[in-house]
Computed example of a mutant assay.
Amino acid sequence: MKSYYKINEISNLYNIGKDSLRYYEEIGILKPERDTNGYRLYSIQDIWKLNIIKDLRNLSFPMEIIKEYLENKTVENTIDILNEEILIINKKMEQMKVQKNMILSRMKSLKEDAAVKDVEVIRETEIGERKVIVLNDNFSRDDEADFLIKKLHKKHEDKLYLLGNNYVGVTMNLSKIKENIYNAYTSVFFVLDSDDRGYDRVLPKGKYLTLSYRGSYEKTKDFIPLMMEYADKNNYKVLSDPIELYRIDVHETSDLNEYLTELQMLVEQQ
């Protein structure tokens, strides 16, 4: 076995960038010797330190804690650090369990949505309250909606673990709808799990007029007037900005014909 290894060998062996190795040297964790040409030579002692560094960094231990441990390594300190590793691993396992349940739930709803046959029909539906995270903004174009959705996802990526796990929706400007303008929106939102506490707003429970359709979002401008007419004929008052909910969209399919959009209007009898 070689006694010393050059920086290229160590970098390739551990898949660690040379800048990181130099940083570890700069903060005093690694202390490579130099050959006659000034090249760094890493010893077996440096290698076992790198083993520890890599394991602890994979668990997101900060460098100051790693450095302190390497400088004061005892059986007691090792037991303490192993206990910390167990706590971190347990937390990661819980997070993975949550992610798995989210994926299973999304798979179930996606299969149900893909199987929907009865579309382009206005229904009166009782819907319970829904917790959402919201980004309020006025916009009119699809690309603006996409940008705001990405912005909201970035802000809450700790909740929205995997793209496509949560229903995405937008609210339509009711005042503009009454002026026959159907591409004016007031917010984008993600629907959260019912037990989530970190929400911005609750979509109220109540009676909704709903209509689902497949295909291009352009169809919204055809169906919203029909729903408004239905509300008027049946003596319903629309209480808030209608919702355009994307049950299946670009996150799940590239086939426009597979898109499933649901329009929802909260109403009450006048």
Rank of each mutant, 00 (worst) to 15 (best):
Thr210Asp: 06
Leu239Cys: 14
Pro225Ile: 12
Ile224Thr: 05
Glu68Ile: 00
Asp196Glu: 05
Asn138Ser: 11
Tyr24Gln: 00
Ser20Leu: 08
Phe147Gly: 04
Leu163Val: 01
Glu33Lys: 13
Ile248Ala: 05
Ile133Arg: 03
Asn165Glu: 06
Asp113Phe: 12
Phe61Gln: 02
Asp222Cys: 14
Asn136Ala: 15
Gln270His: 14
Lys150Ser: 15
Val116Cys: 04
Lys176Val: 04
His251Val: 05
Met63Pro: 01
His251Phe: 12
Asp46Lys: 04
Gln45Ile: 04
Glu144Ser: 09
Met265Pro: 15
Met93Val: 12
Ile224Cys: 11
Asp142Pro: 14
Val168Pro: 00
Gly215Met: 04
Asn173Ile: 04
Thr36Tyr: 12
Leu87Cys: 03
Val134Trp: 02
Lys97Gln: 11
Ser60Arg: 01
His153Asp: 09
Arg130Cys: 04
Ser109Asn: 09
Pro62Ala: 05
Lys221Trp: 12
Ser175His: 02
Tyr42Leu: 09
Arg141His: 10
Lys237Trp: 11
Thr171His: 02
Ile243Met: 13
Leu263Lys: 13
Ala231Arg: 06
Asn136Lys: 15
Asn165Cys: 05
Leu245Ala: 10
Leu70Ser: 01
Ala184Asp: 05
Val134Glu: 06
Lys91Gly: 07
Ala184Asn: 07
Tyr208Gly: 14
Ile79Asp: 09
Arg22Leu: 14
Glu33Thr: 05
Lys221Thr: 14
Leu239Asn: 13
Phe61Gly: 03
Phe61Val: 08
Tyr208Pro: 02
Leu135Asn: 06
Glu64Lys: 08
Asp232Pro: 12
Asp55Phe: 01
Lys221Ser: 15
Glu25Pro: 02
Ser216Pro: 01
Gln269Glu: 14
Asp80Val: 12
Asp46Trp: 05
Leu87His: 05
Met172Gln: 06
Asn8Met: 02
Asn173Arg: 10
Glu179Pro: 10
Tyr167Asn: 12
Asn101Thr: 01
Glu120Leu: 11
Lys92Asp: 07
Val238Tyr: 12
Leu209Val: 06
Phe147Glu: 14
Val267Met: 04
Asn173Ser: 05
Glu126Phe: 00
Gln264Asp: 08
Tyr236Trp: 11
Gln95Phe: 00
Glu71Leu: 09
Gly215Tyr: 11
Ile53Cys: 02
Lys154Tyr: 09
Arg22Glu: 03
Glu126Pro: 00
Asn136Ser: 14
Asn12His: 11
Ile122Ala: 08
Tyr230Val: 01
Arg130Ala: 06
Val98Ile: 13
His251Lys: 11
Asp158Glu: 12
Glu76Trp: 06
Glu68His: 11
Asp113Lys: 12
Lys155Val: 03
Asn90Tyr: 00
Tyr14Thr: 06
Phe139Asn: 07
Ile248Ser: 10
Arg197Trp: 05
Ile177Asn: 00
Thr261Arg: 03
Asn257Ala: 13
Tyr69Asn: 10
His156Gly: 07
Ile10Tyr: 08
Leu239Asp: 13
Lys6Cys: 03
